[in-house]
Design a protein around this nucleic acid. Structure first.
Length: 409
DNA sequence: GTTCCACAGGAACTATGGGTAC
DNA sequence: GTACCCATAGTTCCTGTGGAAC
């Protein structure tokens, strides 16, 4: 008999700080959305013709991540379908995330399948899928609201055509009526839209502004009451989570993540949630984000990053593009990898900068040229481990860049 | 004021691979 | 099955640039 029998019994018996952790996950849609009643009422006012069997105006919803756009849209969608059932009006809402369903063909196929029309994953001409969708949609009287989340992800990716078709589909329909809700993080995405699509799609614009710290506190209170045991949380925790998330452009998702991770850390230590757990959670979330980004970098970017980390071991002040490129060439030779041009490596450095992994500033050193000063903005040790996990880079574990390189530094 | 360095970064192009049309 | 389209990654070529040195 193994002494690990009943391991789950022990863990289940542990004092948990949570009553229902699921309510703190971003995927959970609450019944009430604090501080979004104006936006919800505006959208509802635009959609109410659907309940009378008329076509609602198309809507574009804008707002940064974590401002409640998707949650609000889904909430309204549910309410609309519920009310439609009560009133015996055939009113349906189809939600699509354009980051996942990201081509014209896939969008149309997804819509057709919603009405039980079988469409192969590939093979049909897009026009045929459109025709099939239109026919199945129009076979009875109904009002359909199509929600296209992250709509900016299909713009310019043959997505202009699908938006053009969908925004004009009502002209080809006899019984059914369609309205479109586009949801975007990018306030400027309509700038690159065809003006014809822009005018028909954006009949109504709704903006979701970022939450401030007070509003985030209300949201956290509302979610924490049913999800965290009252005696398991200190008073300062919610205001601190709200303050941290308010600094990150008022992101409610970040605030909820902070609270959930703080709870998990406190639970692991068998304590109630305190300020220190929030601060630890803040670091953990940031590190997890960076680790995730680094893991999914292309190998060449990983090599550039590893080169920067290795060079920084021997140099206190910032590195220049030239130094990094020299070191990078050496690592390429060592790993038998193809060496990219300096032009390309410059771009990779800029990309790493944009991801917040390194900090690269263009500086002029007068007669000694113009370059980028590069420093790390993350903890080198943890990221180095992640990079060396890549089998193509693993033989660089104990390799130091050549002495000629280091003496120059 | 001019020169010069060490790049930055734009533009135009090619190669490649996956999706789409027929 | 094949031709075509398009996005992405990368290259080559080029002009532009801030400021120390002269």
């Amino acid at each position: 008999m193994m002494d690990t029998d009943g391991i789950f019994d022990d863990l289940l018996d542990e004092n948990s700080v949570f009553k229902n952790k699921e309510m703190l996950r971003p995927s959970y849609t609450p019944d009430k959305l604090p501080h979004r009643s104006d936006q919800i009422n505006d959208i509802a006012r635009i959609l109410v013709p659907a309940l009378r069997g008329e076509t609602p105006s198309n809507i574009l919803i804008y707002g940064k991540t974590g401002t409640g756009k998707t949650v609000a849209a889904k909430h309204i969608g549910r309410e609309l379908e519920k009310k439609g059932e009560e009133l015996n009006v055939n009113c349906s809402v189809i939600y699509l995330n354009c980051k996942v369903v990201d081509t014209q063909y896939r969008v149309l196929a997804h819509l057709a399948r919603h009405f039980n029309k079988e469409v192969p994953l590939t093979g049909w001409p897009t026009d045929q899928v459109y025709q099939e969708f239109r026919e199945v949609l129009d076979n009875k009287k109904r009002v359909v609201t199509i929600m296209l989340d992250e709509i900016d992800k299909i713009i310019g990716k043959s997505g202009d055509d699908i938006l053009y078709h969908l925004s004009r589909i009502n002209q080809d329909l006899k019984r059914a009526k369609v309205s479109i809700i586009g949801i975007s993080n990018d306030l400027k995405f309509t700038d690159i839209l065809d003006p014809r699509i822009k005018s028909s799609l954006g009949e109504e614009d709704i903006i979701f502004p970022p939450y401030n710290a007070d509003q985030l506190r209300d949201i956290l209170k509302q979610r924490s009451e049913p999800s965290i045991k009252e005696e398991a949380i200190s008073d300062e925790v919610i205001p601190l989570c709200a303050a941290f998330a308010a600094q990150e452009h008022g992101d409610a998702r970040r605030a909820l993540d902070l609270l959930r991770v703080s709870g998990e850390l406190a639970e692991k230590e068998g304590e109630k949630i305190k300020e220190k757990h929030v601060r630890e959670a803040q670091d953990k979330i940031e590190l997890d984000r960076v680790v995730e980004v680094v893991k999914t970098l292309p190998t060449q970017s990983k090599l550039v990053l590893l080169c920067i980390i290795k060079l920084k071991q021997f140099k206190d002040n910032d590195l220049t593009t030239g130094e990094v490129y020299e070191g990078y060439q050496e690592l390429c030779k060592r790993t038998n990898m193809e060496t990219l041009t300096q032009r390309r490596v410059t771009d990779l450095i800029s990309e790493l900068d944009m991801l917040g992994i390194i900090n690269a500033v263009v500086v002029s050193k007068g007669r000694y040229g113009r370059t980028k000063e590069i420093s790390l903005s993350i903890s080198a040790d943890e990221i180095k481990e992640v990079l060396l996990d890549d089998y193509r880079l693993s033989n660089l574990k104990n390799y130091n860049l050549s002495s000629s390189n280091q003496t120059k530094l």
